[in-house]
Design a protein around this nucleic acid. Structure first.
Length: 526
RNA sequence: GCCCCUGUCGUCUAAUGGUCAGGACAUCAGACUUUCACUCUGACAACGAGAGUUCGAUCCUCUCCGGGGGUACCA
């Protein structure tokens, strides 16, 4: 869709990958990376490979791995080769590929592209300091020219070498798919370790080797990996010479997702935790849509779209390079749009787990609900769908409709709706409503009746008239539309609630007055 | 220190060598209304600074400043 003469064009058969390390809980930055890779694959008709980079035993956990897979499944981000689905280049767990890395490291060594390095980090730092270089100068290449005799001496002492890649002394340039041409100056990237002295291959080796073996030709990853690109480019050159890599992939570095202030969204931020967002009531469509907006946009006037539209329109060339802040309010607003777009039945079924968690219904799944629950929810769904922005808000809206309590304790906001004349309002409402024949207990009729009796005849302002009735029926200041609610609740319970609020009214008003007095004293507790 | 990325309303972004610099979220005001929402109307609000190129720069170049990342035997 987009063109950019400064940027290289994509290969015919795009092969992208998503390769997380299974550490910690899935976070939005990770999901956004997965999403863009997915979108690029779907847009171009290419393939998405899903690999797990579990080379860091200390931090990797099975729990994390399960959560990542669950996250992708929930979101509907699917892949073509890799974990669970297999493919021609497996295994797709790096922990099962150690022999491959060992062999490649040896080939690199034999070809002279890599060398054994006996210097410990401490020794390197000490040399830097002794030579007047900052300790952070990095590795100085000391072992590169070490003679065989010296190495032999170290081995005799029982020292084991790390393996380092030789970096050429020249500028390294590549054209980033999102940032354009980037040049790293010669000498700015030291010889780096690919295998630890204990034989463990590091990310620096495993990632490019697997990408090469899995024939990945487009790498879309986080900006944090940008500065490791020059060393990978060098490694690819070596791998190509060894016949291991077909090509150097194209790189595109996606901007960070930032949290508050100028900090990368950290795992401690609750909005970074995918499952917390889901618990909060984000639906996948809304969350994904919002995440796609972080660093990309569909066009001037469109920011609510589906996954299909994303796949149709996405292009890595349109990704912007500057970091984006995660704005929970906008995320919620986008989510609300998607909730409204849901088919009503779909909406209510997706709400059921949240309702169950809040103790509002008897089961986790729609199919397991009672007939009465389903009936009420079906009637209530259209009333609440435009009134919630997150699925977790549904409970508050339908709670009073599903409860069979004959008295609902007014919450704090509801208290404010109750005035000195509320008793008269309730008396009148009870009188009028008790006389309604069962067959006429319908929202329209109730509305007509109460408007007539309370407003027109009794002269109450609508707000003053319906406020107390609402409080009686819902216990809250905010509720779904009153008359429809009363229809759903039914005559007996509706009237019972009115009567009960009426009989509690004096106490409630007294308590309210006391609370106000308290508050005006300074509001300090203890 | 050195290397690299980045800078348009508070936030996400669009567009452009010449426009009133557009939209969305948020905020505020209003309409609708039985509450709250939905919907609609309106308001507020941005090109980090300085040079240079140019008839003209938000856009091109340079410098500075701000922010971020790297400089690991993490990824």
């Amino acid at each position: 869709m987009s063109e950019n003469s400064e940027k290289p064009s994509l290969p015919k058969d795009v092969r992208v990958r998503f390769c997380p390390s299974p550490t910690g809980i899935p976070h939005v930055g990770m999901v956004r990376t997965a999403l863009f890779n997915w979108a690029e694959a779907r847009h171009t008709g290419g393939k998405l490979v899903f690999r797990i980079e579990d080379t860091d035993n200390a931090r990797d956990t099975d729990e994390s791995l399960k959560m990542i897979i669950e996250a992708l499944n929930w979101l509907g981000i699917d892949w073509d080769e890799g974990i669970n689905v297999g493919g021609p280049d497996g295994p797709y767990y790096q922990s099962q590929r150690t022999d491959i890395y060992k062999k490649v490291a040896q080939q690199l060594l034999d070809a002279g592209y890599a060398y054994e390095s006996f210097s410990t980090p401490e020794e390197t730092a000490a040399r830097n300091e002794a030579n007047g270089r900052p300790a952070r100068f990095g590795y100085d290449g000391y072992d590169r020219t070490m003679s065989e005799e010296e190495k032999e001496k170290f081995r005799a002492e029982g020292r084991k070498p790390a393996i380092r890649i030789k970096m050429p002394d020249e500028d390294i340039t590549f054209t980033d798919l999102v940032r354009g041409p980037i040049t790293f100056k010669a000498g700015s990237t030291p010889d780096y370790v690919i295998v630890r002295p204990n034989g463990d291959a590091l990310y620096t080796l495993t990632n490019p080797v697997d990408d090469a073996l899995m024939n990945i030709n487009v790498v879309l990853r986080g900006e944090d990996l940008l500065s490791s690109t020059p060393r990978q480019i060098v490694l690819y050159d070596y791998l190509k010479k060894l016949g291991i890599a077909k090509q150097t992939p194209l790189f595109g570095h996606l901007p960070y997702v930032m949290g508050k202030g100028h900090k990368k969204l950290s795992k401690r931020d609750p909005e970074s935790n995918l499952f917390l967002l889901r618990d909060r009531g984000f639906i996948k469509e809304g969350l994904l849509n919002y995440l796609a907006l972080l660093g990309w946009s569909m066009g001037p006037d469109k920011d609510v779209f589906s996954m299909d539209e994303l796949a149709k329109n996405f292009s890595v060339y349109d990704v912007v390079a500057n970091p984006a802040h995660f704005d929970i309010d906008k995320a919620i607003a986008i989510n609300a749009e998607h909730i409204r777009q849901l088919d009503t039945q779909d909406f209510i079924e997706r709400s059921v787990p949240y309702l169950h968690k809040d103790g509002v219904v008897s089961a986790e799944k729609w199919e397991d609900l009672t007939g009465h629950e389903r009936e009420v929810l079906t009637a209530a769904a259209p009333l609440v769908q435009t009134r919630v922005r997150l699925l977790s808000e549904v409970s508050g809206m339908v709670g009073s409709l599903l409860s069979d309590d004959e008295y609902l304790e007014p919450d704090e906001g509801a208290l404010k709706q109750l005035k000195d004349d509320s008793g008269e309002v309730l008396d009148k409402a009870i009188e009028v409503l008790e006389a309604v024949p069962d067959g006429q207990w319908k929202a329209d009729h109730l509305q007509e009746l109460l408007e007539d009796e309370l407003v027109a005849k009794a002269g109450f302002k609508p707000r003053r008239a319906f406020g107390p009735v609402r409080v009686a029926e819902s216990g809250r200041r905010v509720s779904p539309p009153l008359f429809q609610s009363m229809e759903i609740i039914g005559k007996d319970l509706s009237v019972a609630r009115l009567k009960n609020l009426r009989s509690h009214l004096d106490d409630v008003l007294a308590a309210k007055a006391a609370a106000q007095k308290d508050a005006s004293k300074g509001g300090k507790k203890n």
